[in-house]
Design a binder for these strands. Structure first.
Lengths: 232, 232
DNA sequence: CTCGGTTGGAACGGCACCGTCTCAACGCTG
DNA sequence: CAGCGTTGAGACGGTGCCGTTCCAACCGAG
């Protein structure tokens, strides 16, 4: 291509300090007003730069947020590997706890997750970021526990992941009440026991005659009294 | 007061059909763009009415959303009471599953929860709505299980609630992958076993120091220690 | 039947943001 | 050290929303 031209240099190169200021500003705005209300102007104002500084780097609000989110995920998360499922879990829970205790993360993560529900690009980026991080730390921990024989090879890993992070995420990001001392160790212990249970492997409740709980006629079938019309 | 005047009547009374149209429009907008981007004009346009129709009823976007959310929570949730902790849990999980499968709820709930993290009014309303609904269904189920002797009276009910709804919420609202058949029964079984574990009662991992649970009054005051946005 | 009082709808000025464009300042490359 | 090429900053027209004001239509109380 046209590389006979001389390479940009001097003042003609993106200033890293301004890029960092913008990244920080985006995170703060994201925490304060959320993705929905995030505006380029506010970000630029907060960073103390012009809007051009933003548009030269990213070109759109979505691209900007996507890039910054991807970068954040590169945070190398220390991977617990103690040789014991229980200890690995406790460390993992401590890590998650620390991350979600962070003021910015505690606001931004749920916001982006909610936004991901309606913006496929964000959903994809978040997924990619989390996976790329460590190919899902929980999966690794489970895999090693299976290799050691601590867990059945037939365990439903998806459900296992839900069990591992679901309760703590709910507590930290939704319920948002303080953790009593001893909460994390107890959660780790209970979760470990639950994972070890033979109930976690698929072919358990299928002896011969299935249909144990067809469709739960015990409760109303489909939230009929919903005030909102289903069809648009 | 001045009731000598004649009461409003005829065309001088709020039309219920327009109110319902507005409610539906708010829910749809909430699902499509979220609370952050929600605008009065779009709501009115979607409902096919003028903005005045909105401002006469609510006066502000926050008040509008708050009122509608409160009303939705009045949905009488069927309260499982089978006499067995496991069956109660399975039914509860089925209910949560049905609610969060609903297209609108699946989008609106996480969005509002994220918004609640930065708007105390929304947080308070959501809390009140959920509590008022059934004074926390999970708490009731736990209480009855304790009365029946299925659970230890010393169980950490907060952690128990996290264990009950955390995994399913994570799966439905965050992970958003399909539930394999048998997921709910298995989750109910595993959770029941975990709750029954002696690990769920406080004085387990404290051989030397008792640490007699200081912050455990009969009723939580109001979770006042809110992490108000401190200095950036 | 009359008309009071409120309704829904539209128009209005103000404001924030969008995305583009112009322009002086700048510092390294050659 | 000269100047190239990009930089950051501000200005600009356009758009969408806010919250208010104005007005004709309307229906039932009296």
């Amino acid at each position: 291509m046209t590389q006979n031209k001389r390479a940009p240099a001097g003042a003609a190169v993106l200033r890293g300090d301004i890029t960092s200021a913008l990244r920080a500003a985006v995170m703060q705005e994201l925490a304060e007003v959320g993705y929905g209300r995030l505006s380029i102007e506010r970000v630029a104002r907060r960073a103390g730069v012009g809007k051009t500084a933003v548009y030269r780097r990213w070109g759109s609000k979505l691209a900007m947020v996507l890039d910054i989110v991807s970068e954040l995920a590169v945070h190398k998360m220390p991977l617990p590997d103690t040789g014991s499922l229980h200890d690995d879990l406790e460390i993992l829970l401590q890590i998650v706890n620390q991350v979600l205790q962070h003021r910015l993360a505690a606001q931004v993560v749920p916001d982006l997750l909610a936004e991901a529900a309606r913006n496929p690009q964000i959903a994809e980026t978040l997924q990619a970021a989390l996976r790329a991080n460590q190919r899902n730390v929980a999966d690794l921990i489970l895999g090693r526990a299976i290799e050691r024989g601590e867990l059945s090879p037939g365990i439903d890993t998806d459900a296992a992941v839900d069990l591992i992070i679901g309760p703590l995420y709910w507590r930290l990001a939704i319920s948002r009440t303080r953790l009593p001392s001893g909460y994390l160790p107890r959660l780790a212990a209970v979760t470990t026991a639950a994972l070890r249970s033979e109930l976690m492997s698929p072919p358990v409740p299928k002896p011969a005659a299935p249909a144990p709980k067809p469709a739960a006629p015990v409760v109303a079938p489909a939230t009929p009294a919903d005030g909102a019309p289903v069809t648009a």
